[in-house]
Design a protein around this nucleic acid. Structure first.
Lengths: 130, 130
DNA sequence: TTGTATGCAAAGCGTTTGCAGTGAT
DNA sequence: ATCACTGCAAACGCTTTGCATACAA
């Protein structure tokens, strides 16, 4: 990313505006509002360069395609809503988990994903589909 | 799976012998020792039917292709060795994590992955590759 | 004007599926 | 003799890459 393009700007805007990690496809949809007709390849190329420049972090959740969020520099986890499939940041952490590993193993880091219902889905449950 | 085939037997053997979750490719390699020439599609089809019959569980780790292990019926987590890339079961659990979620969110379950070095890699570190 | 970033389309990678043939019952 | 299971190859969904063009500098 050496040049500023409207596509690049729209992509960065989309990610920074969303207060949660987005899929490549969601980034495309959000950025396309600003720049209609942009291609998914451009999204991936911009993501890659933003990740390389530490402006973005990749959020890998179990069994999910990667999502992307603005690089937070503090340790955090994620909450995956099983109703709407959206992913939210969780700023709390259970703390030291070194003692959980089998004997002789050295724990260096951990990833935690919480599952359940987000506040929106708890308040307005999806209608019982026939 | 209504008929017993040598491929199916070899696949189940491979998974039960391994004391850790295996990738489809690893299952193919292990089962191929017993039944040379078997195809990856057969592995996937057998996996699917074993999972449907609750003989196998799918282990999804962040950013990883799915692995498969014999269905344990107790809650457990996984340890991913960052040296050899193997995945091991962790039978311990940090316990109640409900209070970690944002206010208004309901936690129903969680997934935890530990990262670090397994016992084998700690004892025999891979040689410094030139 | 220069050459990076884009859009399109093709290629990759892991997984799934269609089809004709094999082999367990 | 059936017909479920297999191997092969094509199809799929997501991501990456090649190439000619557009546009930021």
């Amino acid at each position: 990313m050496e040049r500023i393009t409207k596509q690049g700007t729209a992509i960065l805007n989309a990610i920074q505006t969303a207060q949660r990690p987005l899929l490549a496809q969601e980034i495309l949809e959000a950025a396309s509002v600003e720049v209609p007709g942009m291609g998914i390849a451009t999204v991936y190329r911009n993501i890659k360069s933003l990740v390389d420049n530490n402006m973005l972090t990749t959020v890998h959740l179990p069994g999910e395609n990667p999502r992307y969020e603005s690089a937070h520099h503090h340790h955090h986890h994620h909450f995956h809503c099983t109703r709407c499939q959206k992913v939210y940041d969780v700023h709390d952490c259970p703390g030291d988990l070194k003692q959980l590993a089998p004997k002789g193993f050295a724990v260096e880091s951990h990833e935690l994903t919480l599952y359940g219902a987000c506040d929106v889905c708890l308040i307005s449950p999806p209608p019982p589909s026939a």
